[in-house]
Nucleic acid binder design. Structure first.
Lengths: 181, 181
DNA sequence: CCCAGAATCTAGCGTTGCTAGAAATCTAGC
DNA sequence: GCTAGATTTCTAGCAACGCTAGATTCTGGG
């Protein structure tokens, strides 16, 4: 099982095309526009082929986009240097790929976090937060604040034009050494 | 137009029953289970009657549940005394009525916040946060942190059993006089 | 008692996620 | 190179969804 068959490669490539197509359609037209029929048309195959790749159907495809998003976010957060860059990277990701962010945090209930069975991509994203705060509870609160800012901004529930002021104050609040007892 | 007709009263009562049924079904079985057919069966009328009350159909009904939720949340926050009670009331509401909270914050894109046309229920909920922080930017950050905690908890993405520790640290962070410049 | 107008229902359209069974294609052995 | 078997892919269709036009039943004023 060392050499991947040509068929296996084609299969893997097609899986990637499905996930990429789902993400792109979602970012452009929103998740309701991501139908199994449209995905099938996009990759040039019939619908049952998608179920060969994702037995859970549409939900499985959304979950794949979410997992991929967690991987990319973890890379960005790991590369960030310092609390300021960390916050900026997080919020930039959410702003640049709102539909992906939605898939990661609002759509599937069944991704396991903070559990023994948590997938690697999900742990990797939390590690830089933990490193920046030095404390698990503090890291969870920072994450909550960032997620709250991203989510409320995405739904236009914060004053536009004040994003920079909010980030500045957030960084000031969570600056090292300011965590209470 | 002073005295409401008997028919008008019946109509208003039926509207309330639709909203209440939608909320209850959502809290028990989740929003996907809230179908127009099931709502019609629940109130004992056929589907077109629902469209007489809510021209926007299912979306309009969800929006009504969300608006009602904002009204109830605003009452709770207004009654709270001090930062600690405020945070506890917010998080309790989100934990006790997760589907309502989901309707308020995750489902309809077209409720207007932080805009000139923002409905009254939505402004009323923000006022106690503003009073507690004394600063609009600070209030937005506190709201973001609370929403983040509520949303991440709802999806089981924070360590269970540490909710109290998180709230304690949050209150310590946002304690009056600690806001940076 | 009748009859206009409002309220309600029946029935159906188009679309969705998903799947069983037919058809086509590829693989392996000779 | 050919054929039998296995695998992949497609066609066609089901049930359920949101929503709506037209038929039908109620209701209240004369």
């Amino acid at each position: 099982m060392k050499a991947p068959t040509k068929a296996q490669l084609a299969r893997a490539g097609r899986r990637d095309r499905i996930v990429a197509a789902a993400r792109e359609i979602a970012e452009v037209d929103g998740w309701p526009a991501v139908t199994v029929r449209r995905l099938a048309d996009t990759i040039g195959f019939s619908q049952p082929v998608l179920y060969g790749h994702f037995p859970d159907g549409r939900d499985g495809i959304i979950r794949a986009v979410a997992l991929d998003g967690f991987g990319r976010l973890a890379e960005l957060l790991t590369a960030a240097d310092g609390l300021g860059e960390l916050c900026a990277a997080y919020l930039d990701f959410a702003r640049a790929a709102p539909a992906t962010y939605e898939a990661m945090f609002s759509m599937p209930t069944d991704l396991e976090f903070a559990r023994p069975t948590t997938p690697e991509q999900l742990r990797a994203g939390f590690a830089p937060l933990l490193a920046a705060m030095g404390d698990e509870t503090g890291a969870e609160i920072l994450w909550s604040a960032l997620h709250g800012l991203a989510d409320l901004s995405r739904h236009d529930r914060l004053r536009p034009g004040h994003a920079a002021a909010r980030v500045d104050m957030l960084i000031g609040l969570f600056r090292p050494g300011r965590l209470p007892s």
